[in-house]
Design a protein around this nucleic acid. Structure first.
Lengths: 126, 126
DNA sequence: TATAATAATGATAATGATTATCATTATAGA
DNA sequence: TCTATAATGATAATCATTATCATTATTATA
């Protein structure tokens, strides 16, 4: 049986309030002032739990994992300059169907990861 | 100036010959019999170099990175049961354009990662 | 409300993948 | 062949994440 915990609430709420796509460490440092006793392990543990429950999404953009509490359909872009992750609020249709035509198995989900340069980095490029 | 090396050739050729999507370690063990002195660091170094040169693709399927020497347009599916990566040979159109409509920056590329179950795992599921 | 059962925590060690270091070796041009 | 230096092999270091375990907090029940 899964028990309630103030830490998990804080972690989930923190993620909901943020518009960036924080790493576990980002959340950890963000909550430290509020919960000084918080452990990084607890953050990882609860993020995994929340993802397992389908309440948040893990964005595995290669190196460090980032998280997102926005469950609405959208994709992400990784800026190849600054490493930030941006929301791409679009709805793509027929993606799974197209794959199903050529794949002999079950397709559960898809995610698109764009790469490029954000407007901020475009401004100060060489 | 980048010099030629028999190790890099071996690593690239090994990747080209394989139809699976090997990890650095997979390639390392695969080449050990041929190049007994090969170091795992050399495999990582050259895979990074080859990716930088655009000769191979790194598939960042979350945990361990996998590599692919097939540069033709296609996507990948990660089997959530066995962890194997499968090719999804499809061409998607309009993906970048759709994102460009809502993103204020430059879009360089995209990749789709499907998740699901391969036919092998579907057979022996609970 | 007090108590018991146990899920969750915090601290930290352990793990696993990848990268950095550095002395030695191999490659390519003069 | 000689020289400059890129690449190697061995291994230490790093970084993110997970496991461990004694302690604490939560929840159901008496």
């Amino acid at each position: 049986m899964t028990k309630h915990s103030r830490q998990r609430d804080a972690i989930y709420n923190n993620l909901c309030l943020r518009k960036d796509h924080p790493t576990a460490e980002d959340i950890y440092f963000s909550l430290k002032p509020v919960l000084p006793a918080l452990s990084l392990a607890t953050v990882y543990r609860n993020l995994a739990m929340l993802e397992e429950d389908g309440r948040i999404i893990r964005i595995g953009s290669g190196g460090t994992a980032r998280y997102d509490a926005d469950l609405s359909e959208h994709q992400h872009l990784l800026c190849e300059k600054c490493g930030k992750v941006f929301d791409i609020m679009i709805t793509l249709s027929g993606i799974n169907e197209k794959a199903a035509e050529v794949f002999d198995g079950r397709i559960n989900s898809y995610s698109v990861l764009y790469k490029g340069f954000c407007s901020g980095c475009l401004g100060r490029k060489k």
